[in-house]
Amino acid sequence: MATETQTELTYRPNVDICDCGAEVLIVADVPGATPDAIDVSFDDGVLSVHAPVAARTLPGRILQQEYGIGDYRRSFKLGDGFDASLISAECRRGVLEIHVPRLAAVRPRKIAVRTA
């Protein structure tokens, strides 16, 4: 899961993606990330997430180590039909939720059938 970059070790967070009709919801696990420092950006059709994680070390002698500590990075290529200006994100309890709304013109909608 870890990918080496020139400067640091970063991790690819687990994500769930939901097509909720009016929007696509991306839910990423970023335990340990500082919410205020998370950077979500959209450029040229690519949604990028960078969630910095403060270095934390356990005191004393390490007995067991099952996961690494490092920033989370992941990018998503979005298709057409999304309204980038309305993308919003919130982070709570180590989970980042990104709401990517569809353009109103392409949202699924129900068309009422009138009787003649």
Binding site: L58, P59, G60, I62, L63, Q64, Q65
Partner: peptide, 11 residues
């Protein structure tokens, strides 16, 4: 999990 120990504690 991660686990470590000092003289008096386990984390």
């Amino acid at each position: 999990i991660d686990m470590s120990e000092t003289d008096k504690q386990i984390h």
